[in-house]
Design a protein around this nucleic acid. Structure first.
Lengths: 177, 177
DNA sequence: GTCTATACGAAGATAGAC
DNA sequence: GTCTATCTTCGTATAGAC
């Protein structure tokens, strides 16, 4: 009993993951979801309202998962837990991960503020963990580097090397830290 | 004596860096370049022809620069040179770097084949260098991780921490390897 | 609450003057 | 080669039937 709202959200994510938000029309989304275009606007108000909702929900889920993974851990253990959790999120929500990768360095869109919290919160959690292991290092930059290593290796895994396991990717990233 | 072609290319890159290709109209590009819309089509045939050219040129320049940086070096020295060169390219061509970040994991666009060579070539150079330092590791994934660490840290630097120096970023990335 | 039909504007592309 | 004017298609959004 998937709700119409959920059908629309799933279809929209699947489409924008490959083509981007702007290149995806509401017509395409409605067709892929198997509903009428009017239903999209009835349920979400507008196209940008739809994506603001999708991104807002996804960002909340991701940052909460990362915070929970780091909770009560410190040092190398925290870093391992964060990398593993981010890879798990990428595996379980691949379309959202691709969407994040394409939108995180953009500016001035409707949903930008929402996705900006990923940088502040998600990278921030990484930075805090890295700072414990390397107190002398530049935490913000090092956190961004570890976050980037995990994200790009994770997406490369998903898109181009799906035969690998999460643990293969985890080890490739962790080896450095 | 900037040619009209170059004015168009520069304006197009500046606009898509923040908004993405699909969200940028030829009208916007022409206005920003200070030329008529017809001139864009006269010079590049179509919108996607314009971006295929921009991406093709940029990819060729980037991969060539990375290959040259790694040339004759090996091990940790090669890795340092590659990270430094990629950061230099990001600093000197920030708009292109943002464009790459947003398009590299997409599929099915006109310019996709061109940008796909970044993954094969650029990440491949990184993977080869990493393989020398860690022969036991998974070269392809480790290369993607190092490439991702450099790219994301570099973009974070450009977009959110411009007061830092290239060397700050380089050290934050290299510290791990 | 979901559908069909349609209004209205935006955007890619072309034609022809200069 | 560059400009202005125009054509046509596509896309967001709304109105009204069911």
């Amino acid at each position: 009993m998937t709700s119409v709202r959920q059908q629309i959200v799933d279809a929209a994510l699947a489409l924008v993951a490959d083509r981007g938000i702007a290149a995806t029309s509401v017509d395409d989304i409605a067709a892929a979801a198997g509903v009428a275009k009017g239903s999209v606007f009835y349920n979400f108000g507008s196209k940008s309202g739809l994506f603001a909702g999708i991104i807002g929900d996804g960002v909340a889920r991701l940052t909460e998962a990362l915070r929970a993974a780091a909770e009560g851990r410190s040092g190398a253990e925290a870093i391992d837990a964060l990398v593993t959790e981010l890879l798990t999120q990428i595996r379980d929500h691949p379309d959202f991960a691709k969407l994040v990768a394409t939108e995180i360095f953009r500016r001035g869109r409707d949903w930008q503020e929402s996705i900006g919290t990923i940088r502040r919160d998600a990278m921030g959690v990484f930075a805090a963990a890295v700072a414990q292991v390397r107190p002398d290092s530049d935490a913000a930059l090092a956190g961004a580097a570890l976050f980037g290593a995990t994200l790009v290796a994770g997406l490369d895994w998903l898109v181009f090397q799906p035969e690998r396991t999460l643990d293969d990717v985890r080890r490739a990233v962790i080896a450095a830290w």
